[in-house]
Amino acid sequence: MSRITKEQVKHVANLARLEMDEAEVEKFTTQLDDIISMAEQLNELDTENVEPTTHVLDLKNVLREDKAQPWLSREEALKNAPDHANGQVKVPSIFE
């Protein structure tokens, strides 16, 4: 039985901000289904009383003083922006 449907792939693609044509949807449906089938192998294990790993080392919260440090200038920060105007990054319209 297929675990992943084409509709799910389209939904996830939208969440991930990816565009796909029908052929790609088809391909990713099959491939994700294969990968998820492999992942379900984990269900063989009883993990009821197992703590999830959130960090491999015993690190405690790492905090620093909330103080501004010199970093990039505005001009530098905009250097790699594909488009900018008036010292700000420019993008196409957000609303119709």
Binding site: V12, L15, F28, L32, I36, L42, T47, V50, P52, T54
Partner: peptide
């Protein structure tokens, strides 16, 4: 795609959290 799916609503516990437990 796989990661977005594993973290998406309704699948998080079954895939992501399960994997974190197996990591332990």
């Amino acid at each position: 795609m796989l990661g977005t799916f594993a973290l998406s609503s309704g699948y998080y516990d079954a895939y992501y959290k399960k994997a974190q437990k197996v990591r332990t």
